[in-house]
């Protein structure tokens, strides 16, 4: 894996310390709720900006903001290592590559305006997708409060998201070692692909 886990991820403020309160009170007592909501709002707003921005440069900048806010969200969700990975791979590599490509493009990647009809149908279909997702998730969302507020689901283990824990998952042959190794052929395809496409480009 590319990101060497050099330092510990920021420890999350554990909300599960002490006796488990009853469900309604816990709902109100999630201490990270505020930051999480804030990160979600930023993520959503920046995603919207990616979709709507005229010109590719602005979209890339919005994508960078989006990526950062997602990383913050990961950190808030007790996933420090993933947050670091997100920073390194997404913000650090992918978004930058996007920026390069956009900068390389002749007229700065200017985009043609979409016709109103296209915009309307696009938004309608997007809304339809959201509605379809809601059919699947709606009951879960409403049930989640009950489910996770109970004693069993509520306790977030204190070691969650530690480098050691994730390392065990990734390098245990019975867990995720196989998929981890299987990314090798995938990356090989990507490498061959980028080189081959470059060579194809380079020839008349």
């Amino acid at each position: 894996m590319k990101h060497e886990p050099g330092r510990l991820p920021p420890r999350r403020l554990d909300s599960a310390q002490g006796p488990v309160p009853s469900a309604p009170s816990r709902l109100l007592m999630d201490p990270l709720l505020g930051p999480i909501v804030a990160a979600c709002v930023v993520a959503l707003a920046s995603a919207l900006l990616v979709v709507l921005a005229q010109g590719a440069i602005r979209a890339v900048v919005a994508l960078l903001a989006h990526s950062l806010s997602i990383a913050a969200l990961y950190a808030l969700l007790a996933a420090g290592l993933v947050a670091v990975g997100q920073l390194l791979i997404y913000s650090g590599a992918i978004v930058v590559v996007f920026l390069f490509v956009v900068a390389l493009l002749p007229p700065g990647g200017r985009e043609l305006h979409s016709q109103p009809r296209r915009v309307v149908t696009g938004i309608a279909v997007g809304a339809a997708l959201l509605a379809a997702l809601y059919t699947g998730l709606g009951p879960t969302i409403s049930a989640q409060a009950q489910l996770l507020a109970g004693p069993a689901g509520s306790a977030v283990p204190s070691g969650l998201g530690s480098v050691a824990g994730i390392g065990h998952e990734l390098f245990d042959a019975d867990k995720l070692l196989v998929p981890f190794e299987l990314t090798a052929p995938l990356l090989l395809v990507a490498i061959i692909g980028s080189v081959a496409l470059w060579r194809r480009q380079g020839t008349p």
């Binding site: 997702l133 699947g136 009951p139």
Partner: peptide
Amino acid sequence: MSLSLLAG
């Protein structure tokens, strides 16, 4: 089957 599992 929970609905979210089915959706997945």
